[in-house]
Structures are given as structure tokens and as C-alpha cells.
Design a protein around this nucleic acid. Structure first.
Length: 637
RNA sequence: GCUGCCGUAGCUCAGUCGGUAGAGCAUACCCUUGGUAAGGGUAAGGUCGGAGGUUCGAUUCCUCUCGGCAGCACCA
């Protein structure tokens, strides 16, 4: 007898071994139809798995949270089968499910074209219609290696070869296609359905290593029904509409051009937003005890050699050869310069913590393929600061910083923040003992700050471990912005010291920290998060005063002047255009507030106030509108 | 950096199977003074990313190069 315990606690008895499919059929024909897999003791398995001992079992249906993974993994296999049928010379490698879809990497001498994509997709639909059973088989490792070698699939053979000898390997067969796979899978190809689409073609390195050959990756997306697929495709379109590169041009915020690759030309409107953000941050950090400094752009290589940047970071630095034969580097980070300021004069323990901030303009030679609009550039400005403190102060400084960071993010409309803890990388400065100390101190401090973290092994800076803060935007994307790094290395290398209470010389600890990360990137994120519709305090043009008839021109000018006098950013539109045209144009320019004036308003000293996105208007007295808008547009305190 | 795709007016795009290009929007001027998402007319605007090559002739074909896009690698 086999006793199967279902999720609702009911137990079903069977005379002998059963499969998930049997159990589902036994429970009801409806369930049998939608059953995709089973969960045995919490682990997802094939529906056809034979169960011969008493166990807890759940039938996985499309409603299950992990069911989409299953579907997408199958989609990858069906795509691989289609590719092998159409292009037998292609070799298969790996094909997992990923967020929103799946991909498969192929090795093939000739590149796939967009036309190939259409053919492959068509063939996938044929394979779905064939409804081939997907069957699991188990093979000995060595047998599996020679099996795939026999098929000419050298990548698969290599993957299996890396698995310990003697271990059994599972293969999945559908029709004539067999793939190495851990599983589980759907019972047949028909279950994939038709709600999938191949989306893009790209190169990808074999085993993710840039020293290896490049394979061809085909990406796709797959869903349980058409509606979900359409919704996903629609979401992609929406994301494209809020692309900061497009909005930056449409809203006349900035531009990029090839004579200055990786550097931004900020237009008046974009620079206005920048200044608002910078002044806001300046106020915030001044309020919590930071001092602001400015340090040189070009610094002799000897300083970078001393700091370790020349060795660990040299490939990413711009250098300049002077006419008198010195080598200067354009600073890629501000920290060594801040240490120089710290080193001026004698510092006492009474000076600590010393929080030194700089809106530091840095240059890094990023690989060309990494550049992306203003989000990833070669010239950027950090909201950087270094806190020189004692080891005892690390915790309280970390707690304070986390509080500051959360408050800043909230002011910009971001409330969902994720934290990662990145520990020692392979390429690093400082002894293991120092790293033990730094990681321990940062972990303790983060715990004291009440942070929930995930671990990010090997991703720390070369001089210390770090916390990375990522904020989630309006359409669910995560952007890593803030960081806090504990550094025992640089103060040592650059000989920073203070006089302790006992009169002895001590090394300070340096906390490297940023909230926005880089202004360029953060402004890009703000643009995409708000889809260009900045909140009033950030909008480059907050109000447009637009006339209906030219008789109202002088009154409109008066309105505009009154608002400007109150500190608002105002444009006056007295062009010879119809009001419908003006409304459309300024709406598309995403101006938050439009004040329309015609003869009536001029006579009554009022304005017709219209807010972006709203369809209605409100007639308000001039004095009142100035007071309301002034109050509303104040930056967060 | 790697693979693939792309580069025509300010923007979005069409076109030339090799005979130096066209639309819409935007711009300028004229008419129109119109009450909340495009009023009408006229004009101007491009050595078709750059450099070589093939050709009587190249924006079109070839090579190189620069830049962009997607992904990979990178992100201290």
C-alpha cells in the first residue's frame, strides 16, 4: 500500500506504486487535464515520477508559482528541437528559464538571422501541435558522454564530463530530440501552448567566460495564455516609452554625441534638474554633519600607485602625458584625494568622525559595450563622501547613513530598497586578517542598522567589503545606487593618522559612501521612474502661462512675473497659436502645471489652472495660485 | 572588448535592382485672435556617419573605420 498525503491533509491509499498523473486522474478529470508536474516533499518532479513509498504530494498546475519556470524551460527545449530540425549542424549547449522567459545557446558557424527566428518560431508551433511525449531517462555518466559525442554534441559532452564519474545523468527525450537535463518537465510538448514568442538574438560566451568562444543565444518569452503574453509585450512597449534616452531628447534635457563618447551634454532643462538634486543632497548632508570639499581632476600617477589604484584599476583610468613628461591620471575615484585633505595638519580623535563629502567628477574608461545612455558613462559625478572614524564608530555611522539614505530615497519617491552584502573579491589589497576585521565590522554594523541583506560573494571593492543599496522603480526594475564600504586599507597605504586620547598615533577607518551613486545614472533612473513626469519640485519647467488671445498678453506676463518672483520656474507662451495646440504641446513636454489666461481671467485677475494628466480646469485667483504653487513646489525638507 | 543588427533632413521613417533623394512632424514667414491635446498656406532644410576601393558614374556594391542598439563579458 502507498499512502499519498495531499496538501489539504487528506490521505489517499493506493494498492501499489503510482504516478502523479494517476493521482491527479483519481482526484478528478479536470485536475488531470491541467496537471503539469508534482511536488514531492516540496520538490518539483515530473508528473510521471513513480511513487512507491508513503509521501506528501501536491499536483502542480499553471496556478503554481513555479509553474511558469517549468513552462519556460520546456519552451527552451522545444526551441532547441526546432533548431535541430531546421539546422542540424547547430550544436546545443544550455537553455534555462529566466525572468519573463527563456533562452537557449547554440554553437553554429553561420549566424542566425531575424528571418531564422520566424522560421524557428513557426517550427516550434508545429512541435507543439505534434504533442510529443516528454520522457525522462537515466544514463550512466560515461555512457552519456559517449552518447552525446556520438551525436556530435561536443558542448553537451563537455558539460557531462564535468559531472563526477559514476553519477547517473538524466536525459529528456521529446520526439527525436534528446537533451541532458535535470528536469522536471511538462508531460508533453503540447502543454507548452502557443503563448510564446522569440524576442531577440544575441551573442553569449560559452560558460559565461569572455575567454571562450561566443555562442548564439536566442531569447524568447512564454506564458500560459495569450493575455499574459500580450500584457508582457505591452509592458515592454511602455518601458520603451519611458526610456531616458528618448525622453532626454524629447524633453530637451541632454544629448550625447560621438565626439565625446560616454560624456553627457546637459541642456538647460536637464541641468536645472541636476542642480535641484545636487542642492537637495547638499542640504541633506549638511544637516547631518558633513563638510563639502573639492579635489583635483588630474593627479600624478605616484598617488595612484601609492593608493593601489594604478595596479588594481589602471586599465580603467584615463591618463595624460604632460609636456614636461609627467604622467597624470584623471581621477576615477575621489578617495585618495580626500585622504590628502585629511592628512593636512594633525588630526585628533576629537575631529572624528570626519565626514568629507564631494560632488566628485570622475572619469573611468568603461568598455565600449557597457555604455548605455546616461546610465553608464565614462564621465560622471558621484555624491561621494568618506567618513574618517574610529573602529568604535563604524556601527553608529552605518546606522546613521542608512537612515539618511532611506530618507533621501523616500523623498525621490522610492520606498522599496534592497540591500546586498558584497565580500572580498579575488583581486584585492590588504591582508586576510584585515578583511576578516572589515567584513565583521560591516556585518555587525548592518545588523545593528536592522538591514535585511542578501550575500553577494566576491563582489566587494578591492579595498573593502561593501553594502549595496538597490531601489525598485515604478515598473519593478532594481537599480543599484547607494553603497557603503568599510576600508582599513587606504588609510594604511596613504598614511592617514590621528592622535588618540592616549597621545598615540592611530589609523582611522574610512567609510566610503554614496546615496545616489552617480548623478548621471540617478537622473536617468528618475526620468524612467517618473516616465518624464517629474514631481513639481523636480520639474525643470514647473508652470507654463499660456494665453488664449493676444489681448491677455500683458496680464499673462504679469502672472508669469509674479510666479517667478515667488521662485517658481515659469515659461510664458504668448505665441499666435490656438489654446488647444498650446495645451497639447505643453502636455507632451510634461509640464506639471498650465495656467491659461484669456480675456475673462485678465479682467478678473484669475487663472485657469490645469494639471498634467487631468482633463479639468479650476479657475483660481492670482494671489491664491502663487501661494498654492509656491508651497507645493518646495523641495522636501 | 565580443557576437549580431543598424547609421538617409532637428525627430520618425520611405527610397534608389548603381544615374547625387522623398513624406509627416518640428523650424521660418504669411493669413488666422481661436476657451483647454494638432487652424490654413508658403518656404527653407540632406556632399544619404567617415575614409578608401570597384565603376564612365557610388547614398546604393566591396573593404576599413567611427558611432548607435540588443545581449554577453565588465561595473573597482
Amino acid at each position: 500500500m502507498v499512502a499519498i498525503t495531499l496538501p489539504d491533509g487528506k490521505v489517499r491509499q493506493y494498492p501499489g506504486p503510482v504516478t502523479g498523473a494517476d493521482v491527479a486522474r483519481d482526484i478528478g478529470p479536470g485536475l488531470a487535464k491541467v496537471a503539469l508536474a508534482v511536488r514531492i516533499d516540496g520538490e518539483m518532479r515530473d508528473l510521471s515520477t513513480v511513487i512507491d513509498t508513503d509521501t506528501a504530494l501536491a499536483i502542480v498546475t499553471p496556478k503554481d508559482a513555479d509553474a511558469l519556470d517549468l513552462l519556460r524551460h520546456d519552451a527552451a527545449h522545444v526551441m532547441a528541437e526546432a533548431v535541430k530540425e531546421l539546422y542540424p549542424e547547430a550544436q546545443v549547449t544550455i537553455g534555462p528559464s529566466i525572468e519573463n522567459g527563456f533562452y537557449y545557446d547554440f554553437a553554429r558557424p553561420t549566424p542566425f538571422t531575424p528571418d531564422d527566428l520566424a522560421r524557428i518560431e513557426e517550427r516550434m508551433r508545429v512541435i507543439v501541435d505534434r504533442n510529443e511525449a516528454i520522457e525522462r531517462q537515466v544514463m550512466d555518466r560515461d555512457a552519456a558522454v559517449s552518447f552525446f559525442e556520438g551525436l556530435g554534441e561536443k558542448y553537451k559532452a563537455e558539460i557531462i564530463g564535468a559531472i563526477p564519474a559514476g553519477q547517473a545523468i538524466s536525459l529528456y527525450r521529446q520526439g527525436a530530440f534528446i537533451d541532458l537535463c535535470r528536469g522536471p518537465h511538462l508531460p508533453s510538448t503540447g502543454r507548452l501552448g502557443k503563448a510564446f514568442k522569440l524576442t531577440k538574438l544575441a551573442g553569449a560566451y560559452w560558460r559565461g567566460d569572455s575567454r571562450n568562444e561566443m555562442l548564439q543565444r536566442i531569447y524568447g518569452t512564454a506564458w500560459f495564455d495569450r493575455k499574459d503574453l500580450d500584457a508582457y509585450l505591452h509592458m515592454l512597449e511602455e518601458a520603451e516609452k519611458r526610456d531616458h534616452r528618448r525622453l532626454g531628447r524629447e524633453m530637451d534635457l541632454f544629448h550625447l554625441q560621438e565626439e565625446a563618447v560616454g560624456s553627457v551634454f546637459w541642456h538647460p532643462k536637464g541641468w536645472t534638474v541636476w542642480r535641484i538634486v545636487e542642492n537637495y543632497v547638499r542640504r541633506k548632508i549638511e544637516a547631518v554633519g558633513y563638510v563639502e570639499v573639492k579635489t583635483p581632476q588630474l593627479v600624478d600617477r605616484s598617488l595612484w600607485e601609492a593608493s593601489g589604484h594604478w595596479e588594481k584599476f589602471g586599465d580603467n583610468m584615463f591618463t595624460v602625458q604632460t609636456p614636461d613628461d609627467r604622467t597624470l591620471a584623471v581621477k576615477p575615484m575621489n578617495c585618495p584625494c580626500h585622504v590628502q585633505i585629511f592628512r593636512q595638519g594633525i588630526k585628533s580623535y576629537r575631529d572624528l568622525p570626519l565626514r568629507m563629502a564631494e560632488f566628485g567628477s570622475c572619469h573611468r574608461f568603461e568598455p565600449s559595450g557597457a555604455l548605455h545612455g546616461i546610465m553608464r558613462v565614462r564621465a560622471f559625478t558621484q555624491d561621494d563622501a568618506h567618513i574618517f572614524c574610529t573602529e568604535d564608530q563604524i556601527t553608529s555611522e552605518t546606522v546613521d547613513f542608512c537612515e539618511l539614505l532611506k530618507s533621501v530615497y523616500a523623498d525621490f519617491g522610492f520606498t522599496d530598497v534592497r540591500v546586498k552584502f558584497s565580500d572580498r573579491p579575488e583581486k584585492r589589497a590588504g591582508s586576510d586578517a584585515i578583511w576578516d576585521k572589515a567584513e565583521g565590522a560591516l556585518m555587525d554594523a548592518a545588523t545593528a542598522a536592522g538591514l535585511e541583506m542578501t550575500r553577494n560573494p566576491g563582489e566587494g571593492a578591492f579595498y573593502g567589503p561593501k553594502l549595496e543599496f538597490a531601489l525598485r522603480d515604478a515598473i519593478g526594475r532594481d537599480w543599484q545606487c547607494g553603497t557603503l564600504q568599510v576600508d582599513f586599507v587606504l588609510p594604511e597605504r596613504l598614511d592617514a593618522a590621528y592622535v588618540a586620547e592616549d597621545g598615540g598615533k592611530r589609523r582611522p577607518v574610512m567609510l566610503h559612501r554614496a546615496i545616489l551613486g552617480s548623478f548621471e545614472r540617478f537622473l536617468g533612473i528618475l526620468i524612467e521612474h517618473h516616465a518624464g513626469r517629474f514631481p513639481l519640485w523636480l520639474a525643470p519647467v514647473q508652470v507654463v502661462v499660456a494665453t488664449i488671445v493676444s489681448d491677455a498678453d500683458s496680464y499673462a506676463a504679469e502672472v508669469a512675473e509674479a510666479l517667478k518672483a515667488a521662485g517658481l520656474r515659469v515659461d510664458l507662451d504668448v505665441r499666435n497659436e490656438k489654446i488647444t495646440y498650446k495645451v497639447r504641446e505643453h502636455s507632451e513636454a510634461k509640464v506639471p502645471v498650465m495656467l491659461v489666461v484669456g480675456r475673462r481671467e485678465a479682467e478678473n485677475r484669475t487663472v485657469a489652472l490645469r494639471r498634467l494628466g487631468g482633463a479639468d480646469q479650476e479657475v483660481v485667483a492670482l494671489d491664491e495660485v502663487v501661494a498654492t504653487l509656491t508651497a507645493e513646489s518646495a523641495p522636501p525638507a
